[in-house]
Amino acid sequence: MTLVMAASMAVVAGAWMKDRVDAGMVFTAVWTGFWLLVSTGLFYGFQFVGPDDICTYPGCWPSPLQEVLVAVPVVVALIVMGVLGFRGEPKLARWRAVIPALVLLVLTAVQQFSWRTLVVPVLFGPPPW
């Protein structure tokens, strides 16, 4: 899935260039961010829908933080994509296509390699508040 998202970020770069703004990149960043927010909220809401599903800790810890941490690479890549969409030059379209995809791939790899050692111990413990 990460490779598909990275490839789609690269495909839209330079497609709708108007002056110094790449409308395709800006629209794709906003649209993807919107659906990321909606789907994260839906997944969070569907975790405890049955009558036997109860939360162990108040606020259903670690659910709110876990969804946010999973989405961090995509959010950062979308922010980079939106900024590059507003600061575009036609001759740099290749770099605008590559940079958000690389940011997504690198951050996802860092997340995967650090998840078990850094994040899981925090999520398995009681809430910090």
Results as ranks from 00 to 15, higher is better:
Met1Pro: 13
Leu3Asp: 14
Val4Tyr: 14
Val4Cys: 11
Met5Thr: 06
Ala6Met: 05
Ala6Ser: 06
Ala7Arg: 03
Ala10Arg: 06
Ala10Cys: 10
Val11Gly: 01
Val11Ile: 14
Val11Ser: 03
Val11Glu: 02
Val11Pro: 01
Ala15Lys: 12
Met17Trp: 10
Lys18Val: 15
Lys18Thr: 12
Asp19Ile: 09
Val21Phe: 07
Asp22Trp: 01
Asp22Glu: 04
Gly24Thr: 02
Gly24Lys: 01
Gly24Ser: 08
Gly24His: 00
Val26Trp: 01
Val26Gln: 01
Thr28Gly: 00
Ala29Gly: 03
Ala29Asn: 01
Val30Gln: 00
Trp31Arg: 06
Thr32Asp: 00
Phe34Asn: 04
Leu37Glu: 09
Val38Ser: 04
Thr40Ile: 13
Gly41Lys: 09
Tyr44Cys: 07
Tyr44Val: 12
Tyr44Asn: 11
Gln47Phe: 05
Gln47Asn: 10
Gln47Leu: 12
Phe48Pro: 02
Val49Gln: 14
Gly50Met: 08
Gly50Leu: 10
Pro51Arg: 11
Pro51Ala: 10
Asp53Glu: 14
Asp53Pro: 05
Ile54Gly: 11
Pro58Gln: 09
Gly59Trp: 09
Cys60Gly: 01
Trp61Asp: 06
Trp61Tyr: 10
Ser63Lys: 12
Leu65Asp: 07
Leu65Tyr: 12
Glu67Ser: 14
Val70Leu: 13
Ala71Pro: 03
Val74Gln: 06
Val76Cys: 03
Val76Asn: 02
Ile79Trp: 06
Val80Asp: 01
Met81Asp: 01
Gly82Asn: 01
Gly82Leu: 00
Gly82Ala: 06
Gly85Thr: 00
Arg87Pro: 06
Gly88Ala: 15
Gly88Ser: 15
Leu92His: 12
Ala93Cys: 08
Ala97Cys: 04
Leu107Asn: 03
Leu107Ala: 06
Thr108Gln: 09
Ala109Met: 13
Val110Gln: 08
Gln112Ser: 13
Phe113Ser: 13
Trp115Glu: 05
Trp115Lys: 03
Arg116Phe: 13
Thr117Phe: 07
Leu118Ser: 12
Leu118Glu: 11
Val119Leu: 09
Pro121His: 04
Pro121Phe: 05
Leu123Asn: 03
Phe124Arg: 15
Phe124Lys: 15
Gly125Ser: 14
Pro126Gln: 13
Pro126Asp: 08
Pro127Cys: 02
Pro127Arg: 02
